[in-house]
Nucleic acid binder design. Structure first.
Lengths: 140, 140
DNA sequence: CTTCTTGCAAATCATTTGCAGGGCG
DNA sequence: CGCCCTGCAAATGATTTGCAAGAAG
């Protein structure tokens, strides 16, 4: 089990129950993506009633501290633990499944495009929307 | 000057003043991207007071009809005339500049990734965020 | 005429913020 | 004990919707 206390401390954030719980939720399924509402409901199921405002605050702070990554798609933002290995996302428009992928060639091309145009890339977001393998099977 | 009446008709939409005006705004600088509010203000300057609700409605309808493309970034959505030539976007986080680019290699890789995972891609969004050439110059 | 559109205000959704009370260090 | 944090409610920003009045075909 990861030690979120240390991570919070080294980010200069006080170690509090809400913060620990939220990070634990995110760490439970390291490649799952949750909305703030999701997290609120999951915490409620554990008997922890933490306001959504706090959840948004904690997530935003942790994002700035590099502990959490935010994924903007259509609809509410989704959050995941930041695992240092950069990746992009595929989102199934039928069932909501989110999967990750990484492609070195795409990354390299992005750098080339930026260099050619004189941009300094700070960040990028790439989301593929479609029907996942499971849903395609069900649709047949 | 493009004939937006015909485009609206073949999309099954009635030809109305608000629709024509909105498409004209978008067509004026074919590679510019506007928010609904932008369009509202531009129309006001021309003396046309069209409510934002209408603008959103028109844009959404035209998007579904394939006449308009919506670009989701941080902040409000931006709209542009749909010009058939698919492209992705670079957004300057300092001045808001939006530029377009296209890269066949990236597109091809996206298809490969989808094929390997069994996805059927319906759409994708890719936005590079950074500092544009002009802003970099000014910052020096 | 009938149906699709618009306008306006009210509703909604996601997210943020102000402020008073609590808790960590 | 002081400052950071949380809770709650109210504020905000973007977008949508209901409904009555107006135009398009």
């Amino acid at each position: 089990m990861t030690d979120y206390s240390d991570k919070l401390k080294s980010a200069g954030l006080k170690v509090t129950l809400p913060r620990l719980r939220i990070l634990e939720i995110l760490g439970r399924h390291p490649n799952r993506h949750h909305t703030a509402e999701d997290i609120y409901r999951l915490l409620l199921q554990n008997g922890e009633d933490i306001g959504v405002a706090t959840i948004y605050r904690v997530l935003t702070q942790c994002e700035q501290a590099g502990l959490v990554a935010r994924l903007q798609t259509e609809g509410p933002a989704m959050f995941e633990l930041n695992r240092e290995n950069h990746h992009d996302h595929f989102v199934c428009t039928r069932c909501g499944l989110v999967e990750e992928f990484h492609d070195g060639i795409i990354e390299e091309r992005q750098r080339k495009i930026a260099a050619r145009a004189g941009y300094e890339i700070v960040d990028h977001s790439m989301v593929l929307y479609g029907i996942c393998a499971d849903c395609r099977r069900q649709l047949k």
